[in-house]
Simulated scan of single mutants.
Amino acid sequence: MVLVPDKGLDRVMTVAEVLVQEGLDVLAFGFAGSRGTQDSGGAAGGSDLATLISIYSFRATIGCYGVRSVEDARAAVEAGAAFAICSHPDPQALTALATAGLPFLLDALTPDEVAAAWQRGGACGVHVRPAEVFGRRYADALPEIVPQATLVPTVTDNDVAAEWLEQGAAAVSLSTSVLSRVFSSEDFGSLRQRAADASTMLARHRSA
């Protein structure tokens, strides 16, 4: 899975197209939802997410991250997201997602936070973010501490991603290792190479 920040619809679409072409076909788009935040690229929110889903849903699995409020959750459901990643969500937001049958992951980091997120109920996994803050050996330690939890770590290095997968992570969440500075550099050739490298790493793991 690749986390793609909200940088405006046109810029995000260009990046998404490269990722999907290179086989990285599970994407989570940054989602402002009811907060309606903006950056230099344009407005963010449910309408942009719905547009991206309408374009890519036949070629990729499209979710969103940054869901916090019940309004965010409802907007994600209405947009047709396949999944949501929640950051310190309101209880009502999780209820709205569960009622709609939309799978969601909860952000957490420390072993206690991961255990609490998993025990909270309803989540299909725990999004360990940022997983590398405790070093590379966290990939070995965390699955032993919370063996019951389904883990999806966010990593910035393909080798570390492979370690987590070898230790039983259900998936890995990529961003920096693939996107780097593409939104400022617009170097889409380098983006394509990084995406291809990540796709090769994932294919190696699946065939192991």
Results as ranks from 00 to 15, higher is better:
Val182Ala: 06
Ala73Cys: 09
Thr200Arg: 11
Asp159Trp: 13
Ala131Glu: 08
Tyr65Arg: 11
Val15Tyr: 01
Thr61Asp: 04
Gly101Pro: 06
Tyr138Asp: 05
Pro5Val: 10
Gly101Tyr: 08
Ala117Tyr: 03
Thr200Gln: 08
Ala108Tyr: 00
Ala170Ser: 04
Arg204Lys: 10
Val146Met: 13
Thr51Glu: 12
Val155Glu: 03
Phe31Glu: 09
Asp90Tyr: 13
Ala131Tyr: 10
Asp39Ser: 09
Ala131Met: 04
Ser199Met: 05
Ser34Thr: 04
Gly63Pro: 06
Leu27Asn: 01
Val70Gln: 13
Thr37Gln: 12
Ala28Tyr: 04
Ala98Phe: 11
Arg204Glu: 00
Asp72Gln: 07
Leu105His: 02
Glu166Arg: 10
Tyr138Ser: 09
Ala203Ile: 04
Ala196Pro: 02
Ser175Gln: 13
Gly121Tyr: 10
Val172Gln: 00
Arg194Pro: 00
Ala76His: 12
Leu109Asn: 03
Ser87Leu: 14
Ala195Ile: 08
Ala76Arg: 09
Asp159Val: 12
Cys86Gln: 02
Asp25Lys: 08
Glu78Asp: 15
Val146Trp: 08
Lys7Arg: 15
Ala115Glu: 07
Met1Leu: 08
Ala108Asp: 00
Thr14Cys: 01
Ala44Tyr: 03
Glu186Ala: 14
Ala149Pro: 00
Asp157Ala: 01
Thr110Cys: 08
Gly63Ala: 06
Thr154Phe: 13
Arg59Trp: 12
Val152Ala: 00
Ala16Val: 02
Ser199Ala: 14
Glu71Ile: 04
Gly168Phe: 04
Asn158Gly: 12
Thr154His: 03
Tyr56Asn: 13
Asp10Cys: 03
Lys7Cys: 14
Ala84Gly: 14
Glu144Tyr: 13
Ala208Asp: 03
Ala161Tyr: 02
Arg68Lys: 10
Ala96Gln: 09
Pro130Arg: 02
Phe183Val: 07
Ser47Glu: 15
Val77Lys: 03
Asp48Ile: 15
Ala98Cys: 04
Ser34Val: 09
Lys7Ile: 11
Thr61Met: 07
Asp112Asn: 08
Gly30Met: 08
Gly101Leu: 07
